[in-house]
Design a protein around this nucleic acid. Structure first.
Lengths: 412, 412
DNA sequence: CGCTATTTGTTCAGCGATTGAATTATTTGC
DNA sequence: GCAAATAATTCAATCGCTGAACAAATAGCG
């Protein structure tokens, strides 16, 4: 019974059109087959006349295009199907992670239209240099996008750390970044983005948050509330509630890695004791499996673990089971607290899901009060390794769908 | 950057007025002094002409009234202040708890205009009988409200348990209720409510949720995101995010009592081990303080504990410190996960806050990654013991403020 | 092949709500 | 007593939705 989420400000005459543009476009975006104007009218409750007018605006702005009519039985004038434009605005996704740089372009429909990954250990690289490399990759992506008829209208950068409102990376421990003013550093490069009202040119956000957003809008659409856990060296979670990312008061939500699972256990670098990260973090699992850390670069650790587990290595299996149990204790707490019914294992956990899921589910079953009445699903992420970059680009593209008025005002 | 929460359905011509009615009325409700029409115009971004028209509707519907002009310096025609009507619609709040029944009436401004508490041990009473007593109290409340010029437009009932969408109490362990069809039982009594479009006649919800809502709208207004912990026999939490209660996928969020604080610790009736409730629940504290449970009825246990602690009783102090530490471990996890900056101790914890806060804060300081950058506030609830009833009534009253169109359509 | 039923999409007068400027109302300060 | 200043209202203009009529395009049927 949450109170109505009305538009925050004044509702003027023009807001009406803005809202209905978004309503109709959103409907087109989420329909499973190209809807006709008549379909949209019945679905939204608007008149056919209004829908026609709205659709005319959307067609003129090249946000949607007409497709082949959806096959229909019976008599009557055939409908013209409406689909999101294959050409037009698109979002740029950027990601700096410990062992790779990634860039991608996602269109209105959520399709990945360009993707580049550059594997390298970024820890010894200065932030400005890492960002410069990223900008270079982004330039190529922009050119590729332009060849496909796409215009980049905004960028989002994913980093494995805490980001403040201004886009400053306050702390990215595993990357060695500390108070890095990302927007200022990127502003020194020539812009790749065509500014559109209502779409920020650059957003910087936590990698776990953006990966969760990517999962939220993956095909086929999943639940609108879930917990997305990125298991890397650190363990971060993106919390999606009712189809929106919950960022917390300062945007630093999701630090699931420091949930205490053994309050008097191993000391953690956060200052606490017995944090989940000490039992289910990548390094903890690797150590428990008896693999010396030195011989394993970060980007192959999970692959090696999966290999060993596949082969039936007892140490690896035990390490994964223990990690899964610790993860399950933490997840059970979160599920009790937030009443979620879906948990997605992403990042490094995705590849280890076959071995992590059973102990996680066992702990949930034992500890979650309501598990008996309605089951909790635990499954691996559907996006690949660079989910955060895809989620970042998608979050930009979806902004256009959610607020098409800005783009339309621009493109006359 | 959550996507715009536009109204879900079609935005028709009339929605425009509805939205602006809500906008202006909401502004009047949250202003710290009676605003003039001109103030409202600048605050909302609407024209003075529009505000005048909207206010005229609100005045005609008796939702607001004109007050003495707010004192102002300088020349010019004096403004007429607008305040929420002292007479008009009001909400009815009901609460069934282990050791009392409570009924109250809250008006549009959030003022408690009527309050009745009936202390009794409800555990041996059949649900239908308990509800019958409550209805009797509510009848008296309705008459009192009518004498004050108030019309009850909806009711909300708080129970210490899990409630499903239909208002059925699935499980209230400490009350001994199981699958109680509350709406059906209440429907057998003559109605006390004047039906208003858009306001449900009866809402049933968890006591912790409604207490949190009450805290959210307490005077003076506090933060819009916080965790409200009701420490009774069980420990429940209401999670308020961005000014809205988060209920979870099925409405069963907030089961903080079963967050594991010692995963291999004491077995809990939920089937898990080492749940918070086993260390910081009322019975656990009482036992740790060396008080035999039998000699203490539920409604005096916390009072007795506070007395002993006040007097410096070593066992009580130790019991409270240990409970606070356990609570702190759980709270630290929640704060890490959700990035909240305020934790409110309510229910039985309110009276024990002086002794619980220090250890809770200590654990937060030690375990919360971001605590160094921005402090977390832990404080007792500002509402009294029957916070849930007040929150319940307030949630009804606030619905009218959030959606005034329904009431206006009714009252011509 | 032609007619009818059916469904889609467009056109247009009507109307509700906001806007912006002009007007009226009421007070302070000189 | 008059000018300046602020508050609130009035009114023509405009924007966008509605509802009904109309045009377009197809399937089914004789």
């Amino acid at each position: 019974m949450s109170l109505t989420h009305a538009p925050a400000g004044a509702v003027r005459q023009g807001s009406l059109r803005e809202l209905n543009l978004a309503l109709v476009l959103g409907r087109i975006a989420t329909a499973d087959r190209p809807p006709s104007r008549a379909d949209l009218a019945t679905a939204t409750g608007l008149t056919r006349a209004t829908v026609s007018a709205v659709v005319e605006d959307l067609l003129a702005g090249r946000l949607v295009s007409e497709s082949d009519p959806a096959p229909r039985s019976g008599a009557g004038r055939p409908a013209r199907g409406l689909v999101l434009a294959h050409q037009g605005p698109a979002g740029l996704g950027l990601e700096v992670n410990v062992d790779y740089l990634a860039v991608c372009v996602v269109d209105l429909a959520g399709q990945v239209r360009h993707r580049t990954v550059h594997r390298a250990d970024l820890r010894p690289v200065a932030p400005a240099d890492a960002l410069a490399r990223l900008v270079e990759m982004a330039g190529a992506a922009r050119d590729d996008a332009a060849d496909q008829g796409l215009t980049l209208v905004g960028a989002a950068l994913a980093v494995p750390g805490l980001v403040d409102d201004a886009g400053m990376v306050r702390l990215a421990p595993n990357l060695g970044w500390h108070d890095v003013p990302v927007p200022a550093l990127l502003a020194e490069h020539p812009p790749l983005i065509e500014q559109v009202p209502g779409v920020p040119a650059l957003m910087v956000d936590n990698e776990a948050n953006l990966a969760a957003l990517g999962e939220l809008h993956a095909q086929p659409p999943g639940p609108s509330s879930f917990l997305h856990i990125s298991g890397e060296v650190g363990i971060g979670a993106g919390i999606v509630l009712d189809g929106a990312l919950f960022r917390g008061v300062r945007g630093w939500s999701g630090e699931i890695g420091h949930l205490p699972v053994h309050p008097e256990g191993r000391p953690c670098r956060c200052g606490g004791q017995g944090c989940l990260e000490q039992y289910a973090g990548q390094e903890a699992i690797v150590a428990a499996a008896g693999l010396a850390r030195a011989e394993l670069p970060a980007d192959t650790a999970t692959a090696r673990l999966a290999e060993l587990a596949e082969a039936g290595d007892a140490d690896a299996l035990r390490a994964l089971r223990d990690a899964g149990t610790a993860l399950g204790v933490a997840v059970a707490g979160v599920v009790n607290l937030l009443d979620l019914d879906t948990v997605v294992l992403g990042g490094g956990y995705a590849a280890l899901a076959p071995w992590l899921c059973p102990p996680v589910l066992a702990e949930i079953g034992a500890r979650v009060l309501t598990a008996a009445w309605s089951p909790v699903t635990v499954r691996p992420s559907t996006l690949g390794a660079e989910a955060a970059a895809v989620g970042a680009a998608g979050s930009v593209a979806r902004r256009i769908v959610a607020q098409p008025a800005g783009w339309l005002a621009r493109s006359g």
